[in-house]
Design a protein around this nucleic acid. Sequence first.
DNA 1: CTATAAGCGAGACGGTACGTCAAGTCTTTGA
DNA 2: TCAAAGACTTGACGTACCGTCTCGCTTATAG
Lengths: 199, 199, 199, 199
Amino acid sequence: MTQREGRAPRDTRRARTDARLAETVGDLLGRLSYAGLTIERVASESGVAKTTIYRRWGTKAEMVFDLAIHRAEEQPSIDTGSLAGDIAVLAGRAVRLVAAEPGRAVLPGLLADMSGDSELTDRLRQGFIAAARDDIAVILDRAEGRGELSTGASVTDVHAALLGIPYAQVHLLGRNDIDALTGSLTAQLLAVLHARPSD
Amino acid sequence: MTQREGRAPRDTRRARTDARLAETVGDLLGRLSYAGLTIERVASESGVAKTTIYRRWGTKAEMVFDLAIHRAEEQPSIDTGSLAGDIAVLAGRAVRLVAAEPGRAVLPGLLADMSGDSELTDRLRQGFIAAARDDIAVILDRAEGRGELSTGASVTDVHAALLGIPYAQVHLLGRNDIDALTGSLTAQLLAVLHARPSD
Amino acid sequence: MTQREGRAPRDTRRARTDARLAETVGDLLGRLSYAGLTIERVASESGVAKTTIYRRWGTKAEMVFDLAIHRAEEQPSIDTGSLAGDIAVLAGRAVRLVAAEPGRAVLPGLLADMSGDSELTDRLRQGFIAAARDDIAVILDRAEGRGELSTGASVTDVHAALLGIPYAQVHLLGRNDIDALTGSLTAQLLAVLHARPSD
Amino acid sequence: MTQREGRAPRDTRRARTDARLAETVGDLLGRLSYAGLTIERVASESGVAKTTIYRRWGTKAEMVFDLAIHRAEEQPSIDTGSLAGDIAVLAGRAVRLVAAEPGRAVLPGLLADMSGDSELTDRLRQGFIAAARDDIAVILDRAEGRGELSTGASVTDVHAALLGIPYAQVHLLGRNDIDALTGSLTAQLLAVLHARPSD
DNA sequence: CTATAAGCGAGACGGTACGTCAAGTCTTTGA
DNA sequence: TCAAAGACTTGACGTACCGTCTCGCTTATAG
């Protein structure tokens, strides 16, 4: 028997509006990329009023982040049993986030809109940076427990490499092959972790 | 015969206009960052007509790239005698490019404008990506000659790490300290180059 | 049996709501004039829901007319014993209606909203035009009985002068002095009534 | 011979834009009256951009006044030889201004927009009130010279009656017949002027 | 005394229009 | 004759109110 809960996300007007928005935003990102997506167009194509959109989010960046990036990001924790395995999974996720849609189309614009707006920056960092950082910390901790790491490696540096390397591959160097990128990113991360200079 | 040499950079009207534009763009980037710099404002603050600006560049991105990034980038080649030394210099340059002004303020917007516009992308990549790639190739070649590298490392991967890591540090993780970033970037690059897995 | 009469204006919820609305409307008219008074603001400042307001009146014009003009307009009939005296009283009332608050702030907007909306026009004319017309008719009748009028003067023309002259003084010519306006309006009305051309 | 003047309003872009706007505004006033005329609609129906409209006028009221009222108001001076004749002409003009289009549709809204905005009020009064006042003054002066006026009548009071009476007739009392209104207005004005009480 | 209907607050919603900014194009002008 | 000046169309911005529409919560009256 499926339990009927009073507070369950019933098929309310709000939910329907949300659904229409999510669909339209996804659609427009696919067709026009981040720069071509305007709140005006989202409103007119979704049939949701501009005012309603602004009631939910103050900014195109927040809307897109919420609908396209954040909602897709509920992922199980990683534990393959070995550092190499964990890092490979992590690298795969990062590469997919950065190099596959919608991330590929969205991130450059999102970072541009964040830059300079520190309030927005903080908000977006919460649900997208913090989680990954925690994953990394857990993985490294476990590996250290198993003796797979020479020294305490910097979580921040791993984090920067994890996201920055694929970002540069895609947006600066024009590389697209997700598998190849995952492979080389995994290798680079492991190199950084293992060969930690002994100083 | 009045005019001495045709191609000399005389104090022509064009040159004066260029100077005014460069100054205004630098000024506005400092005050308003990339997003707040508009062609409208450049025109009105510099006193140069919008039409004139459009005759020089087709896009705000091209203008800013040309005036703020490209012109500053004439740098001597690197040869310290050791791989570690060369990488340290390279890392220092990359961190400064990404984390110091004007790069810090300009790059996110520039990448956003590039993304999706492949013509613009190609143009900007020429004068900004290709040069660095050559530097890296030369350095790695020399190191290999000296026996400092176990195997032929991927120039592209080093390149991605060189630019991507500081970019993520600054724009995703919010780190600002140029010296610290240079140090950790150098260490990461050396780790990648030395501990190349033997496969 | 507790309650005496069903229709008595007891301190019911409705009455309290009405009172809050009347107060808020008066207040807002004073602070912001007719144009600045919006139903949205009345609702938010009074704490009465927009729906409740719309349940009472279909239009801002009707609401304001009802609360600000109509309710203030229960006035005793005029009979000073002479035409000149009656006209002076009438002129005083008209000038106060037009030149003093709330009329001064409300009438231009009210007339603008009426113009073109004939249904609204008819409704508003009832409780505000008709009464004055009757007053005039009675006064002229009595004066005619006393032989103070040469011929049957047109009630409509007197009516138009009574309201139109102060309206123009205030809103077109920028005059404000209520006493002066009353004096000159009285003189003009008497001139019109006495010197009725004999044709 | 039609004289060619250098500074004549040639068929320039600006002139063409102006013409399109005047036509569209006239058209919309006819179809939708003042309240239904929005700058948005003027822009879309005329094909002239909103920004261009705002470059010319800061306000719908100013635009309409300029295009619909002011431009139509270049009228020859009045001199029929007698006070009665002059007043009849003046009354005819006033009644037409107030009771005929476009005035009938425009004035209530214009007065509402003016009310409270003293800057706008002053501007609109210049080109629309001042001229009429001068006409009246000249006529009364001449009549006084001819001995047709008992005493110096108040130009302001005549002015208020001239405009206010037809305004009230049309917008408060619902009368429309231009000839009838002209006749009774003329009579009322003459009554006011002749029977000036001897005090 | 209680059930029930009416009145009410809250506020989300689809709309229209506002007034502004900047983009990029096209005309006019002046040196 | 060509570049500066600047007027123009376009499109999006973010905001204010409009009038409609649920949705539960009071409240007051009638059974």
